[in-house]
């Protein structure tokens, strides 16, 4: 399995960031950064990362099964994450969630048939003072209104 030169450089630096003999520490960051490029943690990717960090593939599976951001299957090219936790709930985050489900015709952790957009109802993303908030992949969108969400989904459909 091969990675881009940029990712290789990042992973190499990562492995040097921990004390000698503690390279298992690089496991979760390595999975996160490799997932950016690969889309999800395939069996092949898990084996490659296991080899680099000196752990078993079972130890990789253990963390993939635990952390919500590590995904064992492909999601949409844009992953739309809508927060409905308390600060967002109070100012309409739950309504945005329903609106997105309805407009995209999919639910929690589902992908549109064309593979363009996936949807996730997420827990607090740390945007409470600018609620309601959502993330498209790693980008934050603050003070989202129903109109803004509508336009955002239309725009995402075009670029994907």
């Amino acid at each position: 399995m091969t990675f881009s030169p940029q990712l290789e450089a990042r992973l190499e630096k990562l492995l040097r960031s921990y004390p000698e003999g503690r390279q298992r520490a690089a496991l979760i960051p390595m999975l996160m950064y490799a997932q950016d490029e690969a889309g999800y943690i395939s069996k092949e990717l898990a084996q490659e990362v296991a080899r680099r960090c000196g752990v078993t593939t079972l130890q990789v599976d253990e963390v993939v099964g635990y952390y919500t951001m590590l995904r064992a299957r492909p999601m949409g090219r844009t992953h739309l994450q809508i927060c409905t936790n308390i600060s967002c709930l109070l100012v309409g985050g739950d309504k945005l969630w329903e609106q997105a489900c309805h407009k995209l015709g999919i639910g929690h952790n589902e992908v549109t048939p064309d593979g363009a957009i996936s949807l996730e109802e997420v827990e607090c993303i740390g945007a409470c003072s600018w609620a309601p908030a959502l993330q498209t992949n790693f980008d934050f969108h603050h003070k989202v209104t129903p109109e803004k969400l509508d336009q955002l989904i239309d725009a995402l459909r075009k670029v994907n």
Binding site: A25, I28, L31, Q59, Y67, T68
Partner: peptide, 29 residues
């Protein structure tokens, strides 16, 4: 002194100090 970033991967529990340390070491939080 050497310093670097370490990314989490989506787990509230890792804000608890001992779970964070487990996670830093590459394990479940």
């Amino acid at each position: 002194f050497d310093f670097s970033t370490h990314t989490g991967a989506g787990a509230y529990e890792c804000g608890e100090e001992s779970a964070l340390l487990e996670s830093l070491e590459g394990k479940r939080g």
